[in-house]
Design a binder for these strands. Structure first.
Length: 733
DNA sequence: GACCTGCTGCGGGGTG
């Protein structure tokens, strides 16, 4: 035990002793001085199950243990489930040191909230949305209850970085500092995270105005061992009914069954549809083998009961349990120990694969990652994406970036987040009743999180909000809520800044199974797979937005919809490197490690042969049949920009897996076209966006006006500077 | 090829 331990209150020491802990964990020792000091922000970055939570809470509780003039600690989490987990973990300690801890979110009991409102002490665990509602509806209480905060902790910090919810959170923290008169004396912010790519950016985003410094705490000896296997599968292209070869999906299911049976695992399958498909097929295999089912799906469209049941089963560790899941099991919900993490089909980002890997392995056992990739059997008219085995290559590139370079995708700092800015304008007016435009601009943009917004853009936003009757101007010049704005702010759906499309509820025997998008075309009599089981649709009621089902045999999972996840330039460049060198192996300790089994490395060789045959090291554009294919080996923003330029130039172009297909053209014509684009000067991102018919993506995009929408969409989807550099480098040197 | 997250106050009906 170290010096810092000695400084802890006797009640906390006693609790630690009772836990049977012989020593504090490394991250806890490292974090304790800065948290205890309480003068700077702290960024605690350390792997899952390394004791991060206690690294913050032990010293923070120590410093607030006898505080009775308002809450001492405000803990913010992106998930209700995580708040419940943390409550369970903190409750015994808080009980022993006689401190109140309150879980505060949409599902917590009103009575518990009322109790906390009366006593105003201890620790409050809350979601950003609940904090938003408190600031709008109970700002007087907020002022009383939080004026003496000693700490604000943000858990799973990476899940907020660079997205709508993260900007809302920053604005909320700013507003909290204002309401409690803590502008010049703010409570330190402590961020907890397992994966942080760009630490510089992460500290900036924790406090954009940099009023107080930020200390970074990372554990040094990350000795966890990672074992990786990549397996390839050939999906036969069947030419006749008599072809009985198993599909790649069936082969993968057989392997998943063999390896997972009897142990606990996570299978990430990238889409809810695939997640359901594997869950249903693996359940069928259990039935076929006369054994109890151990396979269950977990994703965002399943009802809470089903998800919680599975989480509890994993947590208990008494029955072997394998979850086929989407990113719902990426974050830190307590799920016990798992033997392996499977990634079926290519991951799209290094950071999410890192999160997933972290779900297996503990200090005493290695993390095991098994990546299963299916590639189509090659036939005469195979697609170029299949010929180059791009799904496999993307997987190999992401694995290499993960293991060798310790690199993660940085957040996209160019985005404007105008939908969230509009939301915050409404929220602040809702909170104060009325406010001057200059104050709002200072509050949100100049001194707040929306620093990419110019004053003219802000003015335009307010004008549009006026036109839409969201706000009106009083005779005094102050802004107040308009007719529509009031309706928005009063409704409970206002607090979340992210978009949620309307859905059908799926109900079996009166119990909710989950939800499906409104545009899913389901008919009575149709068989579907959902929640890991097979059903037949008995009734579809558009009026009550309900789909009734009952158990049945057969049926495939429905489509859930969604938009593609963008791939970063660094990944595409790593794919190019791998193909040019004909080597995907990972360099570790001076040795090259092979992590692909036989079929995967055969598929890789096919890709390299094609790559070399077409001299793709030199050729950026190649021809297949009547079409040309552009290989930028760049992220989706550049691919989108090039594709948009081609379409505006009258070509018939589309992209897939980062490759642009242009119909009926020759490479020379395309390269000349690109050169002309640069010589004539490229259009702006805004101009490119103008031509896109459907640009509304975020919740309040419908109200920001066409002009700003083009700014917003352009910055999100296109990058003209990087594109121009790419054209110059490839065609003009 | 296609991810995820969250929210109030009140009224009606059931249970102790």
């Amino acid at each position: 035990m170290n010096n810092e331990y000695e400084k802890l209150d006797i009640r906390i020491k006693k609790w630690i002793y009772q836990q049977g802990w012989l020593d504090l964990r490394e991250i806890q020792k490292l974090a304790m001085p800065s948290v205890m000091d309480g003068k700077s922000d702290v960024l605690i970055s350390s792997s899952t199950a390394s004791g991060k939570t206690e690294a913050f809470f032990l010293p923070a509780i120590n410093n607030t243990i006898d505080q009775n003039d308002g809450f001492g600690i405000l803990y913010i989490s992106p998930l209700k489930a995580l708040i419940n987990d943390q409550y369970r973990r903190l409750e015994p300690l808080c009980h022993d040191v006689n401190m109140q801890v309150t879980a505060w979110h949409g599902d917590s009991l009103v009575s518990k909230k009322e109790q906390a409102k009366k006593t105003n002490t201890g620790i409050l665990l809350i979601t950003p949305e609940s904090l938003e509602s408190l600031l709008i509806r109970r700002s007087e209480w907020v002022k009383r209850a939080f004026s003496n905060l000693k700490y604000i902790a943000i858990d799973e910090y990476h899940s907020f970085i660079g997205n709508e919810r993260g900007y809302q959170l920053l604005s909320l923290l700013n507003r909290l500092d204002h309401v409690t008169n803590r502008i010049n004396n703010p409570a330190p912010r402590v961020a907890l995270s397992a994966t942080l790519g760009d630490i510089e950016m992460a500290t900036f985003l924790l406090r954009p105005n940099k009023k107080i410094p930020c200390t970074i705490v990372r554990n040094t000896n990350n000795s966890s061992i990672l074992k990786i296997q990549t397996k390839g599968y050939v999906d036969p292209v069947k030419s006749s009914m008599h072809d009985v070869r198993a599909s790649a999906e069936d082969q993968i299911c057989q392997d998943l069954y063999k390896i997972c049976k009897g142990t606990s695992n996570l299978i990430f399958a990238n889409s809810r549809q695939k997640t359901e498909l594997f869950a249903a097929q693996l359940r069928d295999l259990c039935e076929l083998n006369n054994s109890h089912n151990e396979f269950f799906p977990h994703h965002g469209s399943l009802s809470k009961i089903h998800r919680e049941e599975l989480e509890a089963r994993l947590q208990k560790e008494t029955l072997p349990t394998t979850a086929t899941c989407t990113m719902t099991l990426e974050l830190g919900i307590d799920i016990g120990k798992v033997a392996s993490v499977f990634q079926v089909s290519a991951p799209t980002s290094v950071s999410s694969l890192r999160q997933r890997v972290g779900r297996s392995g503990r200090r005493d056992s290695p993390s095991i990652l098994r990546v299963y990739i299916s590639e189509k059997e090659l036939v005469e008219n195979s697609n170029i994406v299949d010929l180059l085995r791009l799904e496999l290559i993307q997987s190999l590139a992401i694995i290499r970036l993960l293991v060798e370079n310790k690199w993660f995708e940085p957040s996209d700092e160019k985005q404007l987040h105008l939908s969230t800015l509009l939301h915050q304008v409404l929220a602040i007016i809702g909170q104060y009743g009325s406010i001057r435009a200059e104050q709002l601009y200072f509050f949100l943009c100049k001194d707040g999180p929306f620093q990419n917004i110019s004053s003219s853009q802000f003015r335009l936003l307010l004008q549009n909000m006026g036109k839409e009757e969201l706000i009106t101007q009083l005779d005094s010049g102050e802004l107040t809520l308009g007719v529509k704005g009031e309706k928005f702010v009063e409704h409970y759906t206002f607090y979340a800044v992210f978009n949620t499309p309307e859905e059908y509820r799926v109900v079996a025997e009166g119990k909710p199974l989950g939800t499906l998008p409104l545009d899913s075309v389901l008919m009575p009599g149709q068989n579907i797979a959902f929640c890991g089981k097979r059903w037949v649709v008995t009734d579809v009621s558009p009026a009550s937005k309900t789909i009734m089902v009952k158990r049945s045999k057969g049926g495939n999972p429905p489509k859930f919809g969604g938009s593609p996840m963008p791939v970063h330039s660094r990944i595409r460049q790593e794919m190019f490197n791998i193909l040019s060198n004909g080597d995907y192996r990972v360099l570790m300790g001076g040795k090259k490690i092979d992590f692909a089994e036989k079929t995967a490395s055969e598929l890789f060789t096919e890709a390299v042969v094609f790559f070399n045959e077409h001299n793709m090291l030199e050729n950026t554009i190649i021809t297949q049949g009547k079409n040309s294919y552009v290989f930028p080996w760049m992220g989706d923003k550049v691919v989108n920009t090039l594709t948009a330029l081609l379409i505006q130039g009258g070509y018939s172009a589309g992209s897939y897996y980062g490759v642009i297909e242009i119909q009926d053209t020759e490479p020379q014509e395309i390269s000349q076209f690109f050169i002309n684009c640069v010589t004539k000067k490229l259009p702006t991102e805004h101009d490119l966006a103008k031509a896109v018919p459907e640009k509304q993506i975020e919740k309040f995009d419908a109200f920001i006006g066409e002009d700003l929408l083009c700014d917003e969409y352009g910055k999100k989807k296109f990058d003209c500077i990087e594109t121009e550099e790419w054209i110059k480098k490839n065609f003009m040197q």
